[in-house]
Design a protein around this nucleic acid. Structure first.
Lengths: 226, 226
DNA sequence: TATGTCTCGATACAGTGTATCGCAGAGTGC
DNA sequence: GCACTCTGCGATACACTGTATCGAGACATA
């Protein structure tokens, strides 16, 4: 085809300015709205009006992007308080609140080592506030609280999703899993479970989280005084 | 095309006998060997010498398969012991051991509600052994231990993988992240972190897990005696 | 001005989960 | 014994994923 008939290349739009931060922010917005599985490089690129491959100038791999997202959330966690107990409680509660803002965080937390600047800064803040604790004790202590928080928020979000999935409201949920549990209990194979489910007081998510955390902090307190 | 020219259909092999259990077992083998991301319906079907769509007679969705895999692992966890403390410790340790046999379990645990028969049986065994505990206390208690275990094993596996990834042995790992941490600490922005990393005794994974668990069990013990 | 370097993004590839649907074989009723 | 219906298998197809490749334009340097 001769030049004359060949159309000029389209006026290329000035390439949109890009940055790691912008990419991560976009990814987080997508994930907040529609969950982690809605986050694809193509969708991010689309939202930024950019070719998918462009992103690879800023990240090497999708996993790296996920790491950046996680680290960005860590920036929202700024523990505060006086004394080890208050600080640890605060980091736990703030992490849980962050998960409520970003449910997908529960899917990633604990899944990869968190060595980004914000995660380190969070760790630093906690350790700095625990200066009066025996240096050999400090890591096990923080690690234990982290572990509890990771597991607790995962459980909580998993349950919340299950309720939401099967029909949006709680009545629907009970209409689906209630009968299943009824039938299962009817087999008589789970008497202890049945008893607890029927007779025990049911705590809401806030209380459940707080009680477990108190167990842990109480236990830590005991060891520290020894 | 006339019959004469049309080749006979190939001798169809008798359709391989299939079952949910066989499918799940195959999926677990794949995951044990090469991780969760190596588990695809096509690979499972291939290993079973079967068309991929055949699996949909037994499961409706890949997520269902993952649920079945998780429940199958729960079957390996048979808590035992006298008294609430021994039983809870046993369920924690056994879960951790199961994760060591099936690293991918750490990726799934806590991510979805566990209502399969084996998970329920595990719960039943725990609750049955906790018969002497106040009925209103029993759920928060078990939930807290579960949360701790979920988070702890996730952390542990994440760390283990990170070490393995960057070069297979620990020397290589320290050669990669060591310098990164050195440089990061050199900024002087993380003095408390630096101090702890440098001065504190480093516990291995077993000890770390056990210490955190002891914190929690101690705390529970305190509440129960009150 | 010519040359080399970098950057962008279209295209391509191998892989994924799953919807669709023709068809063969098994089972059923006459 | 034969026609018919039904069932379930699996080839094919679709939309989507992450990412390798590479030609071409933009820019910086000699």
């Amino acid at each position: 085809m001769l030049v004359w008939e060949r159309p000029e290349p389209p006026d290329r739009p000035v390439p949109a300015p890009l940055s790691r931060e912008l990419i991560v922010r976009t990814a987080i917005e997508l994930a907040d709205e529609a969950g982690l599985e809605a986050v694809s490089l193509r969708k991010i690129a689309g939202a930024l009006d950019v070719g998918p491959m462009r992103l690879y100038g800023y990240i090497a791999t999708k996993d790296e992007l996920l790491d950046l997202m996680v680290d960005a959330v860590h920036a929202e966690i700024r523990p505060a308080g006086d004394g080890w107990r208050e600080v640890l409680r605060s980091v736990a509660e703030l992490t849980r609140q962050a998960v409520h803002r970003h449910e997908w965080f529960a899917d990633l937390i604990g899944g990869r080592p968190q060595l980004g600047p914000n995660a380190l800064a969070r760790g630093e803040a906690v350790l700095a506030a625990l200066g009066d604790v025996d240096v050999d004790m400090v890591m096990p202590l923080v690690t234990a609280v982290d572990a509890y928080v990771i597991g607790a928020v995962r459980r909580e979000i998993a349950e919340r999703r299950a309720e939401r999935t099967s029909g949006m409201d709680q009545r629907q949920w009970q209409a689906t899993f209630g009968p299943y549990l009824e039938r299962t209990f009817a087999t008589g194979r789970f008497p202890a479970l049945e008893k607890v489910v029927r007779d025990a007081a049911h705590l809401d998510a806030d209380e459940t989280f707080r009680i477990g955390l108190d167990f842990l902090l109480d236990g830590i307190s005991g060891r520290l005084q020894r």
